[in-house]
Write a protein that binds this DNA or RNA. Structure first.
Lengths: 194, 194
DNA sequence: CGTCTATTTGAATGTACTCAAAAGCGGTGG
DNA sequence: CCACCGCTTTTGAGTACATTCAAATAGACG
């Protein structure tokens, strides 16, 4: 099993010795997820934090009119979960599924909490991770309130240049908060101006 | 000095003994903020986490067209900061000022980091706090994408019943992401339907 | 009080959505 | 390897939700 990615990800914020690394990796479960396969449905309880090694997941909500709104893409080296459900252990409102063939490592909330006690450095690691997510999430709120669809598309292209390549526009539309039809028109304008 | 509010706030998630409480409170600085007075301007570095005891603060961004977008209200018992600037110690894009006469306690990032090391329980406390903020922030992204202005106003009234009372509508408009003029019309519809 | 700011109301405008249809693209099976 | 099917993307016309601008009214603070 290849834990190099996740250990590298963690070493960005905390230093682990060999024993700690071994303990941590012993808690992880590997999983392969096929395209369109779900790892979480809304109204289910989210039991795991998921770290993506390869491929790409998406976390999204379906509103009362049946429209999908993507909260998060999770390309390699990203963590994803329904945070509400994970911390409350109540049914959440997020769906998480695979955009393509994906490989992940799962860390259960129970093991995570054990980890916080056994190796307090992990408390720090996830605090830092959560702080960064919060920063990104708040910036997105501001962007959604202050930018036009055209500007949000530009921001997205700039922020996720690699995702743009192999992501259906439909999904980008659902992330930046417009209809696919309108994104198509926006994109035309965007590339006209270059 | 009255630390009962903040100690009660903290005891929701972690238990402190007398010595730890004393150490923690020794790090806090008290401050009184007049209406319209700033505790942080955009392009400044945010050095403190701020806990509100009395009154109300707001954190907001001003976009390139000069419009204000409120990211957060901080009534009593809430924490507020420009998280981006606080964790990166680089200039941020948030303004924080007082909506009314307000009393706060300040915890500097340096002291906070010392606290994480001296009393690791605080690492846990702020992790939990940040997780909850993240949950709220992500739900707000979804609400902004899936709900109409009327629905967002309803959600706001339901979520912050006490704030509604003494908050200028202008500020509510700036929080839910509409113009004050339009909120005025939305509100008329809202109360017609009751 | 008087002034300044907040709120309401209305008409015109704009940005993004809806619905419908056509065109493009990709995968699958014959 | 090609043909077909389903799904995505494009295009267009009509519509809706929210903004802009302007003016009148109401309210708050010194």
């Amino acid at each position: 099993m290849d834990y190099t990615h996740i250990l590298k990800n963690i070493s960005k914020h905390i230093q682990l010795d060999a024993k700690e690394e071994k303990y941590f990796t012993s808690l992880l479960k590997e999983k392969k997820i096929k395209r369109k396969q779900f790892i979480l449905h809304e109204n289910e309880i989210c039991y795991h934090s998921t770290f993506v090694i390869k491929g790409c997941l998406r976390g999204y909500n379906i509103d009362q009119n049946g429209f999908e709104h993507i909260l998060q893409f999770a390309p390699p080296d990203w963590w994803i979960a329904d945070m509400y459900s994970l911390i409350s252990q109540k049914p959440g409102n997020l769906n998480i599924d695979a955009i393509e063939e994906t490989e992940v490592l799962l860390l259960s909330r129970k093991d995570q909490e054990k980890l916080f006690i056994e190796v307090p450095k992990f408390e720090r690691f996830f605090r830092v991770l959560t702080e960064k997510s919060l920063v990104a999430s708040r910036q997105r709120i501001l962007d959604n309130m202050s930018l036009s669809a055209l500007q949000r598309f530009g921001t997205f292209c700039h922020h996720y240049p690699t995702l743009i390549e192999h992501l259906p526009q439909k999904l980008i539309a659902s992330y930046i908060g417009v209809t696919p039809e309108f994104l198509s028109k926006v994109k035309a304008d965007y590339f006209k101006k270059l």
